[in-house]
Amino acid sequence: MAGVLDSVNQRTQLVGQNRLELLLFNLGDNQTYGINVFKVKEVLQCPPLNEIPKRNPVVRGVAHIRGGTIPIMDLRRATGSAPLTNLETCFVIITEYNRSTQGFLVKGVERIVNMNWGDIHPPPKGAGRENYLTAVTQVDNRLVEIIDVEKILAEVSPMLDEVSAEVIQDAQAETTVLKHVLVADDSAIARKQIQRVLASLGIKTTVCKDGAEALGYLTDLVAEGKDPYHELMMVISDIEMPEMDGYTFTAEVRANPKLANMHIILHTSLSGVFNEAMVKKVGANDFLAKFHPDELAKRVNARIKVLTGDGFEMED
């Protein structure tokens, strides 16, 4: 296992090419799971865990790692199965999501595979609203399930998703009632969080589950003789999405003369390892790490003020 992530920092060239690398792992059964390497900081043998009072059952304890205290969550238990046993033989995947660091307890870690987002697909329809998958793919004829980590984090440690009163008071949504916001995100939890923020500002949303679906929505507007720039206030897009990631989506929008003026915010949980240069390269207007309701609302308010003539676009 030593050295399996030694070259993670050299993999940033994959972004913008609709590619990613998955770290494959298992939870002690025959199913293989994957997590984006960009979210992984370290993989290590499970260290000694200290229990904490009144903890969520998914949190097996906290570990002291490199001078910090990190909660360790049992991914097997989080997805509805029996908790992992014999922790001394398990591994912990240290990740950074939504500006916080946490560890996920797994039974075994296998290898890293280079993938194209086009080969990663949404979960099958009918999987049920309580499923924990955000995408599926195949590696060596094996089904690989990608867990919706944002759903697990929202259940273990719910985040405040309400916009503060002063930010709502600053909104001018009534002046843009004919426009709405296009939201692209593969996580159902993330889509609902964004929708609640926008609804508190009086703004309607159209949601898509990935970049390909969002791009199709925009091109359909053009085919109907509509101008997406006048139909939509902005697009809020995740980066990690099956079929087409947010980088590629943004680049495709900018390459289309009839879509090129769209205002795009990349809104992602890739906070600690995010390649800011790629945002400028693909032409996004802004970047925001998930998930802080007031910050998102303030960006939307700033866009409203630009559209109503009361503000100015921020320079890239």
Score class of each variant (00 low, 15 high):
residue 7 S to N: 12
residue 9 N to Q: 12
residue 14 L to I: 08
residue 16 G to C: 02
residue 18 N to P: 10
residue 20 L to I: 15
residue 21 E to P: 02
residue 21 E to M: 11
residue 23 L to I: 12
residue 26 N to V: 04
residue 26 N to M: 10
residue 34 G to C: 06
residue 34 G to K: 10
residue 36 N to T: 10
residue 38 F to P: 09
residue 39 K to Y: 06
residue 49 L to C: 02
residue 52 I to H: 00
residue 54 K to C: 01
residue 61 G to C: 01
residue 65 I to M: 03
residue 68 G to W: 03
residue 82 A to S: 14
residue 90 C to Y: 07
residue 96 E to G: 07
residue 97 Y to D: 10
residue 98 N to D: 12
residue 107 K to F: 09
residue 109 V to Y: 09
residue 112 I to R: 12
residue 112 I to N: 11
residue 123 P to N: 05
residue 124 P to L: 11
residue 130 E to L: 13
residue 130 E to Y: 10
residue 131 N to M: 07
residue 131 N to I: 03
residue 134 T to F: 01
residue 135 A to N: 08
residue 136 V to A: 03
residue 137 T to G: 08
residue 145 E to H: 14
residue 147 I to D: 07
residue 151 K to C: 01
residue 159 M to E: 13
residue 160 L to P: 15
residue 161 D to G: 08
residue 163 V to T: 12
residue 166 E to V: 01
residue 169 Q to C: 07
residue 172 Q to H: 14
residue 173 A to P: 07
residue 175 T to D: 10
residue 177 V to N: 15
residue 190 A to R: 03
residue 191 R to A: 03
residue 193 Q to Y: 15
residue 193 Q to K: 11
residue 199 A to M: 06
residue 199 A to K: 15
residue 206 T to S: 13
residue 212 A to E: 09
residue 213 E to S: 10
residue 222 V to F: 00
residue 224 E to W: 02
residue 224 E to R: 13
residue 227 D to L: 06
residue 231 E to D: 04
residue 237 S to C: 03
residue 239 I to Q: 10
residue 242 P to Q: 13
residue 245 D to N: 13
residue 249 F to Q: 00
residue 250 T to P: 07
residue 250 T to L: 05
residue 254 R to D: 02
residue 262 M to I: 11
residue 264 I to D: 05
residue 265 I to W: 09
residue 270 L to D: 09
residue 278 M to P: 05
residue 278 M to N: 10
residue 279 V to D: 06
residue 279 V to C: 14
residue 283 G to Y: 04
residue 285 N to P: 05
residue 289 A to W: 02
residue 291 F to G: 01
residue 296 L to M: 01
residue 296 L to F: 00
residue 298 K to N: 06
residue 299 R to A: 11
residue 302 A to N: 11
residue 304 I to K: 08
residue 310 D to I: 05
residue 312 F to M: 14
residue 314 M to T: 12
residue 316 D to C: 14
